[in-house]
Design a protein around this nucleic acid. Structure first.
Lengths: 192, 192, 192, 192
DNA sequence: GATGAATGAGTATTCATTCAT
DNA sequence: CATGAATGAATACTCATTCAT
């Protein structure tokens, strides 16, 4: 017999993200999803309970990959705080740029009829490292006072907006310039 | 589509926004929409062509109201530029807070399959005043260099994020404190 | 608008019974059911929740009609007990013969995956009159001792078997002869 | 279909009967059947053509076992006819009680779409002995006149109903008391 | 052979739109 | 015009059967 396949799981995730990007959440049809993933419609149900299970699973997967990426992003060898923040922002911007579909997906799912009671905690976990970085800066008197969690969200939205604006409206590619503007704007918001 | 009864149109808009808030765009069913608006399902088709027509009409309406609000927002009597920016941001924050559902709706519609080729121009129109304010600051050497349009989007996303974070995650009410933080963060990003 | 139609409800019941007779419970397809009832597939869902709801509703309806028939069946003017029992059995046999499809349906549904927790009570209600007749006979010393409920079931099975055997295996029509045999056999079981 | 492993065939029969008892014929899924029989889904197709083949095979097997049992049931040493009938009814009641699932299965299959044109003859074969017993009684003037085949069916339904009523509705165990009632009722129907 | 994942035709169900009242 | 029942195409999901391992 054929073994349940990690590659198929991966293919389904990829297909879901692509389809969401192309047609929006509501536009996802199981048959199309299967075709895009290169499997039969019925096979989707070997891997997932139903449509909602696919969407929530993709959400979970994509979030955890994001968290993993941000966790591993090293900022250690930088000497000063500002430099470390900017390095981190640069890495985060790279990640956002490379994972636009995933980020769009999470965003759309959040406000969809498929999202039932997903806890806010999930999101927080994902930002733990960023949060700690902000708190460190506040403790060192280098960062503006204020709720660090809120600040993290603001930073997040700035970076996503800059990249989205560039790619969606200006049809431009993500480049060093946008990357630098991310650093600039974020640092402007943070610094005391 | 011409209107036969202004009140019904209003009810349909309100119902659309509420439903979008509750279940997301994909969760809007004509029957539910009608019920929420207090009319019969079939009557929706007296006022609108089809579902897409409703969504696009609500979008148009809500956008034009937003633009009208921002247009009318006066900043004239303030003496200095920073003060005028902050006054404006405060007013904008008030508007965002008072129209969260509408803003969510626009946001979701933007990336939905219902939105066919709505031009980016619409959005620009809406931000014309903000844009001019930023450009004025740049000309006066008070505002950081950079694409003003991009800056407007960044400002916009900061304000929306601050208010959304407060209301959604902290379940807190919009108040003077959030309003002030909007001003602070925005000015931090703008100022040279 | 069109009013929800009692006739359609009736048509669906009839179609369900016919289809069950023709193809068995498992052979009922919503599309075919709708066609047989002369309505659109989707309309089934105007009248019922889902397939199971149709089956359980038909069950309920058919049972209550049976109970109503047996309730109304008069035996009053007969002078002696044996005569009254035989009159009643004759009427019941007429009913069974005229409602074979309904009886088959109830029987099949009983042991189907659609039947969840239908209580035994339903069945008892339906037999109340028969039960009282048996008890009356026992009190008068005319009927054999024993659990009256059990006796009612035995009587029921005898009548159904006689009629089914005649119609199914012998392809014969229900007639006075079978009717009389019902009376004979039942009375043989009952009499002391 | 030839057998490769007698034990597996036995397991499949048992699983089929259990499943039919639990969920009815329509509720039998190949995957569940396989799980219950302790083999893989695909293996079912090593032993049988398809689903219908399983059901008909189980039917055949179960019927032949029943016939074998009734054939072997001896009534020879009883002196008088009534005693022999009662002995036989007692044995038959024992058999019915011990094979409720099989009997339900046969009953349901009979009226299902799986049963194509299984001849009525099969059933007759199975009742040959009972039939002869009744005919003997009629010839001896001890049994009521009437179609012996019909009488056999009536007897059969009485016994099954008594046992089913006891076990299903009263949750009681089959015991000497029920056994005796079977004899009583049957003899009441038969005797002239 | 045995296994259970893969397949896809077949079905139940949804829901935008139409239409009789 | 308003109503909400009726429609049926569109879609999610099931499950007998096949087949790669």
């Amino acid at each position: 017999m054929r073994l349940k396949d990690e590659q198929k799981f991966e293919a389904i995730i990829r297909a879901t993200l692509e389809l969401t990007h192309e047609k929006g959440l509501a536009g996802i049809k199981m048959s199309e999803l299967a075709r895009k993933a290169g499997i039969a419609t019925g096979s989707l149900y070997t891997y997932f309970e139903d449509k909602q299970d696919i969407l929530l699973s993709v959400d979970r997967e994509v979030r955890s990959r994001g968290a993993a990426y941000l966790m591993q992003a090293s900022t250690d060898d930088e000497e000063n705080y500002e430099g470390r923040v900017k390095t981190y922002v640069g890495q985060y911007a790279d990640f956002v740029s490379a994972n636009r579909e995933a980020i769009l997906f999470i965003d759309l799912l959040q406000r969809s009829p498929f999202m039932t009671e997903r806890s806010y905690q999930d999101t927080v976990d994902q930002y733990r490292f960023t949060l700690e970085l902000v708190e460190e800066g506040q403790n060192a008197g280098l960062v503006r006072e204020g709720d660090p969690e809120e600040m993290v969200h603001v930073i997040d939205s700035i970076i996503k907006m800059l990249i989205d604006h560039r790619q969606t409206h200006l049809k431009g590619a993500y480049d060093e310039e946008v990357r630098n503007r991310c650093k600039e704007y974020v640092w402007a918001v943070l610094k005391k």
